[in-house]
Amino acid sequence: MPTMQPLMLPPLVIETQNLTKAFGQQKALDGVNLQVVPGAIGLLGPNGAGKSTLIKCLLQLQPITSGSARLLGREVGSEGREIRKRVGYTPEQDCHIPGMVGCEYVTYCAQLCGLPFQAARQRAHEMLDFVGMGQERYRKIESYSTGMRQRLKLAQAMVHDPEIIFLDEPTNGLDPKGQAQILDLVNSLWKRYGITVVLSSHLLHDVDRICEQIIIIARGRVLVHDTLENLKARRRGAAEVVLSGRHQEFESACLRRNWACEPLPNGHIKVEHHSDSLNSLLGLLDEIKLPPLEIIPSPNALEETFVQALEISHATA
């Protein structure tokens, strides 16, 4: 008789049961139930959806009205200090400890998490190097630009080597180059260093680029919690085709097969081929002897899922 191998599931990093947070009559979180495994997690939602409140409740920055939550296997509420020793957080708003220079501030943050001074100072410089800050680390924080402050926030969140890091709108106020740099850094945290990342944002592109798991939240409720792969699978049947020319010919061929197609402002052509795979689309391109430059499957899966979830939420409200 074959022996049953136990199913090895990764430990949950976030676990909530009926988590509710109310401000007076207004419920910012309304019975949130989550079971999140380690990874790069995107927390999506419109402004005021409850994303930041969820993070703050998990970090005990705000008291929970009812329900329970566990972070890294520990009970939120009774083991706050121990949890925060293993958690990093970059708040959405600008916040720092005044009167300090950058490296002094990051060292101080490490010491607040229990690192001895020598280790804290060494880690602070390592993290400032990691986020790409140069000699400006020796300047007062008050003189920093928005981009530098975002980098500094990231450095202070990582300086004590957390197991999970919460990033609340980390690309706010950054120029496109700065956004790309910060996202690359964040991307590497899980993929290269195994640090679970929870990226809260209302920018779908940021989340799409980095995250493997998606949590969509609106009106204090979790609408969707799934992997990005699954969400994209649900949205198969559409693709964006990038061609070097002969656009008209391609569109005519699509229409002959009753596939809706639409030229996009960026020059791509969006095609609804109603198939789980790209084989039929590739077949069509082969038929008209038109080699594509690129085919992007399920290009707007996240956006469409997001919009659909919000519409359902509005309809049921």
Binding site: L59, R81, R84, P91, G99, L112, H160
Partner: peptide
């Protein structure tokens, strides 16, 4: 100063409580 610069959030997100 900490109230003005929102430093309380930073303190509260570290391994110290409000009491500490």
């Amino acid at each position: 100063r900490d109230l003005a610069s929102n430093a309380i959030i930073i303190y509260s997100s570290k391994a110290v409580s409000r009491g500490d």
